[in-house]
Design a protein around this nucleic acid. Sequence first.
DNA 1: CTGTTAGCGCATTCAA
DNA 2: TTGAATGCGCTAACAG
Lengths: 352, 352
Amino acid sequence: MKKQTTIYDIARKAKTSTATVSRVLSNSNYPVSNELKERIKEVAKELNYIPNMIGRQLKTNNSMTIGVIIPSITNPFYSSIVLGIEDIARSRGYHVLLCNSHRSSELEEEYLKTLFEKQVRGLIVSSISSNKELVEALVQKGLNVVAFDQTIEGLESSQIQFDFRKGGFLATEHLIEKGHRKIAFISSPLTRPSRLSIYEGYQQALEKYEIEVEREWIQIASREEEISERNYEFKNGIDLTKKLLQCSDLPTAIFVCNDMTAFGVMNELANQGIKVPQQMSVIGFDNIEFSQMMTPPLTTIQQPDYEMGRMACNLLLDQLDGEETKQVDIILQPKVVERQSTKVLDKVFLFK
Amino acid sequence: MKKQTTIYDIARKAKTSTATVSRVLSNSNYPVSNELKERIKEVAKELNYIPNMIGRQLKTNNSMTIGVIIPSITNPFYSSIVLGIEDIARSRGYHVLLCNSHRSSELEEEYLKTLFEKQVRGLIVSSISSNKELVEALVQKGLNVVAFDQTIEGLESSQIQFDFRKGGFLATEHLIEKGHRKIAFISSPLTRPSRLSIYEGYQQALEKYEIEVEREWIQIASREEEISERNYEFKNGIDLTKKLLQCSDLPTAIFVCNDMTAFGVMNELANQGIKVPQQMSVIGFDNIEFSQMMTPPLTTIQQPDYEMGRMACNLLLDQLDGEETKQVDIILQPKVVERQSTKVLDKVFLFK
DNA sequence: CTGTTAGCGCATTCAA
DNA sequence: TTGAATGCGCTAACAG
């Protein structure tokens, strides 16, 4: 990188001081005569001046940058959230430093630290780590944090939660209302609170309607795949469905913990010649953009990704701009988006 | 943000100088006695010291950060590329500042400037803008750039190109080899060189095999939707297919300029009860992860997204680390990934 | 081996 | 209205 032009160069050429140049070029409202103002701007343009924000940051201790940590950037659910965050950040003059934890606690901690070192003014995070010491330490040091997706219990910061338990309940109830009683559950490992809640919702619905379910119908992946496994969830859906289909007594409906996994489920069902929804109903969770693009379009639980991103960012920037650290705690409500992957149970199944 | 502990605080408490503290904590290999080294580390831990990279940056003029500009973060093609970039960047100790131009030239220019202001050491960009003045100016100022996807003609920097024309040719030829002669083309606006090349490839294949095609079979969207239109391409596919299906003489196969649009095409075909591939063959372009998840899985042209990201990043960092600005120009080759959305034309169609 | 000092680019206090 | 001077946190040249 060559030596860049600085305000000093401009000051010299415009025969004035760096102070005045700074005042003009940083749009300060400090009074400067119009004549001088013009001259400085002219010289700046002439020299192709582009300010060095590092200098400004060091002085003002205000980076106008926020950090975002998510588990997976290739999962459309998260990329939609990031889009929401970014849209708001941009409109309010902030920039986003995006980090992809790859579902790894170690990477998450590393990023957490780096973001702080880079002096981000705030942080939006879907934490994967059960160890919250570091986040808490940073909050203690004055970092503003908004947690979403995976909420961090006891953290002194704003949170955007989602009622996963109710979502799990609604999904299961939707199937029950369609006449299903043999309802399978396919899920990634229950290592995250969100997934555990979904599972609880499923169980609660079964209980409420006094339905008993075969052990084998509950297929939960045992290991969490970390780092660079790209379509991990899709593959997971395929594998778990294979296992499920080995049961002697098959379910008539499957509730899947998220849409990406549900795509794997549908894929394997198609492979084995099982028609959705005629022979098997499938309901997902998240309502990512792609769920409407599937054939058949996937019935699922709506989690407003883009809006969550916007909300999280607005919350954070309100805190940053307002100086006051009032904690807000929001719980978003789920709803069923019925499409064509679920249907009323055929009588032939009912009396089987 | 409260006042953070600095090396000065540590120096005072450890009864030494900031220079020595800096030497120890920045892992310099400058000799410091073990005893003092230990003491400093201890005090640093005690005070929960986290270095301020802004200070270091201002001094060393080395941010260890690279910028990335892509048109859409929610398009899996780009998010896979970003994943590839990020994986390499991380492994080589760099960080990524990601910007989403929303297919807007203005936003792109704004980001370009901001990234430079933030002192990124290099830039990986899929440029949407036809005005390359700003990029060129920045390159002139010493910014290292690697362009991909949309190549920037005449730019003094490395490029990772893709043979879009050949890809378009191969896709069309694939359909021709399956016996198709009535081959439609559906595309987003041909405003980008990449898409124009795909279209040329399509035309060349038709010419080579002496095939004439109805005007109406070539459906190209007229306006490029910018900013925050999330599933723009999907919708586009739906709209253009609707138009196409109004033709009196229908094609037997459709070549779509990218997978996302192809999803819209397949969706609308399903809606109108037209079976893929029995009644209509569809081939896409890109081979994003989701194309394998569709029913039927989409036949498409492979563009190695993740690997392109890795390659671009390695190229850039080689330049940065090596000091030498040797320009590399790579043209990646396309290949057909045959899945189940295309099939040999039925005789019933042949003799119709 | 250790400490003193200068300065990276900028904004801001203070004095004029 | 302008300019000189200071310092943000850190590293590096230099001196000891």
